[in-house]
Design a protein around this nucleic acid. Sequence first.
DNA 1: CGTCGTGGTTAGTGGTCGTTAACTCGACAC
DNA 2: GTGTCGAGTTAACGACCACTAACCACGACG
Lengths: 212, 212
Amino acid sequence: MSTQAPAPTRREQILKEAARLFAERGFHGVGVDEIGAAVGISGPGLYRHFAGKEAMLAELLVGISGRLLTGGKRRTAEATEAGDAPAALLDSLIEGHIDFALDDRPLIILHDRELDRLRDTDRKLVRSLQRQYVELWVEVVRQVYPGLTEAEARACVHAVFGLLNSTPHLGRPGALPGREATAALLHRLALGAFGAAHDADGRAHASDALDR
Amino acid sequence: MSTQAPAPTRREQILKEAARLFAERGFHGVGVDEIGAAVGISGPGLYRHFAGKEAMLAELLVGISGRLLTGGKRRTAEATEAGDAPAALLDSLIEGHIDFALDDRPLIILHDRELDRLRDTDRKLVRSLQRQYVELWVEVVRQVYPGLTEAEARACVHAVFGLLNSTPHLGRPGALPGREATAALLHRLALGAFGAAHDADGRAHASDALDR
DNA sequence: CGTCGTGGTTAGTGGTCGTTAACTCGACAC
DNA sequence: GTGTCGAGTTAACGACCACTAACCACGACG
């Protein structure tokens, strides 16, 4: 019960502020002095907690990729155990990803923006986690929409990630009414996209969707 | 007819390579020497063509934002003149954006990634062009789906941009068969997303889409 | 044939930035 | 009390980098 009130440790403070700054101005655009200043200490004091600037980015990226994958696996396991239909699992995955996109905007930005600033070893780890997460989605999508080839399903998943991760581009105050409304809207959009991928697989230009 | 074979001038060469490098490693991650080397000259020779590194980025971002907006306006004018339905215009806008996303990947990446590295004056100009482009879409979307509020329509447009701009994340060789297939798939996904935003506006959770 | 603009070159400069070194200071163990 | 350790501090160093200076080649042109 002592662990439930997060009691933000120094490390976590630093990581949080670093994520915000990296997302705002880019990895190379923010100096260690700024990160230190953001948590009340100055400059090289950070080196008591991290091996270097890059180590912070690595921990952030590994952390988010890992949590996305873990969450996805957990939801898959729960759905399998409960005997849910694949469509319900896909729903659950979408919901989980939306929660992430809405609650951890800076991390979502970093996640596909600053990956190349990592050392080879860290980058490979992050890419592996990301790939597993994508594959998790691809499998579910193909169960829900069996007409899709694997390549199509993967492209759809990437596209829907782009859709769901678009939240940072909405003005900071949020032009949308509230969090719930935004989440519901994104959920509908994602499902609509997947559904459109499914129907009329082969040729089928826009015309058949236009005369709704 | 001498102008039709582009005859890539030095400036254009530099801009093209700079766009590629900026997209790969970020604005601060690439040095002027690298950009020079990419076009066969070295280092400060670039300053015969540009006022500075930032001027290159500014020209790239203003260029892409301007071309997107111009293309959108042209399509709108054509559709209005031809008396086309709003749905056909939306189709045309989607097609134009997809062409851009598939043909100018580095610029698409820069477009929403490095905007904050510009001087105030340039950044305001780019943002203004981007805003006009979004508003163009929002108007058309609201004509096609009158049930949407303006805020909802704007969120949908941003989300669909995220979807369409996801192409850079697909592996370089392109997991998809060909360009045409990818374009068609993205087109369907975008229309599906818009359509899903429209139907069941209020509450309407995923359930009604699940029992397809 | 001079001269002048264009598009290069190399060397240098000032500033920034990540990282390390050396030191301080309080908390706690024994 | 004394020693140790964790967590800061300031100062300095070395690398990098955008940009400038000074110089050069050469084609056009009168």
